[in-house]
Design a protein around this nucleic acid. Structure first.
Lengths: 193, 193
DNA sequence: GTCTATATAGAGATAGAC
DNA sequence: GTCTATCTCTATATAGAC
């Protein structure tokens, strides 16, 4: 877009987004606690202090990361509300959710995997990831659904996560992961009733 | 066993086991990085230095924890080797694995969930958790099995983990979790072929 | 908006008395 | 086998120049 000349340094305009990108990468591969502000700064080619200009601190960065992912679930909730109620709503909603898995969402999941303790700490202050899916499952199952059904439903929505974990030491591509997840979701929601 | 008198302090004989118990608890709830040696010491009512008498350091503690869980997988491997080969070996092995889930193993899984970054760091030095299941899946599937089947198999063995995660904001008991996991494993291994 | 320099706090770990 | 005291390192975060 803008001409940056021959400098190797980072531009100033989209710095915030770039910080988030790099931070997501590092938090995912080394974990939140295993990643220092300095690590992020070095990866960006700037100093720690620069980061403090853009974010109040390390926690502010991870919060911004979470906000980015929230909209996906909200979109799903909105879609569900538009649907005609029926016994196959769980199946359709779960298939839709898993089938619409984007690379961004996969990145978000890897991040969540690597940072469950931090996520839970943030969850206590509000803005939980788990709570989002409470809503989803609540709308997709009858109110008095037995625990077994609730667990099965939640697992059906979370197959990408499971497949991602399963793929950890294999050479599976992301497409294959999503495919496996879809198959699992189908298997889990076929004979719910 | 031995008479300790009226002292409120911890006994000296089984200290090692007690350290591991407390450390497992704390590592699970707050994460490895979120738990300091001091935290463990305080929970035990002793000082940091005492811990260093029993363990070389923080990493030695987590390694001891991992060793405890290794035997489970080795038992499964031994069982598999005794089985007559057949197409339903995956189903039987996975059902056996999931069905034999003990409270200890659940504790181990919660621990693993909360500490994936550390686990992966330890994995690089050998003694990986993932690698153990590489062996399991290798013996239970044909050598040239397509990726989809490998992923499905790994997911089938890991349903307790998935169910545990799914149960996070629910009131599900551990028995219900295992039950849901068994159902999922059955669904995932029924029409493998 | 980015830098240098520094304040401050907490971690893991060790020495050595008891 | 547990203690007190201390070392060392690294982290987050801030102050203030440019």
């Amino acid at each position: 877009m803008s001409s940056t000349g021959t400098s190797g340094r980072r531009v100033g305009s989209e710095t915030r987004a770039e910080i988030l990108r790099v931070a997501l990468d590092l938090f995912t591969s080394r974990g939140f606690d295993g990643t220092s502000i300095r690590d992020i700064a070095e990866a960006l080619g700037v100093t720690k202090s620069s980061l403090y200009y853009h974010f109040a601190g390390k926690e502010a960065i991870i919060r911004a990361l979470l906000d980015d992912r929230r909209s996906d679930v909200e979109e799903l909730l909105a879609w569900i509300d538009e649907q005609p109620p029926g016994t196959d709503l769980l199946h359709r909603a779960a298939m839709r959710w898993v089938g619409s898995t984007s690379p961004d969402r996969i990145r978000g999941m890897r991040f969540a995997h690597a940072n469950r303790p931090v996520m839970r700490k943030l969850a206590d202050d509000g803005g939980d990831l788990r709570a989002w899916f409470d809503d989803v499952v609540r709308r997709v199952l009858p109110e008095d659904a037995p625990v077994a059904d609730v667990l099965r439903a939640r697992m059906a929505f979370d197959t990408v996560s499971a497949a991602l974990f399963a793929a950890q030491t294999t050479a599976a591509t992301e497409a294959e992961v999503v495919e496996a997840a879809l198959a699992a979701t189908a298997a889990l929601t076929r004979s719910t009733d």
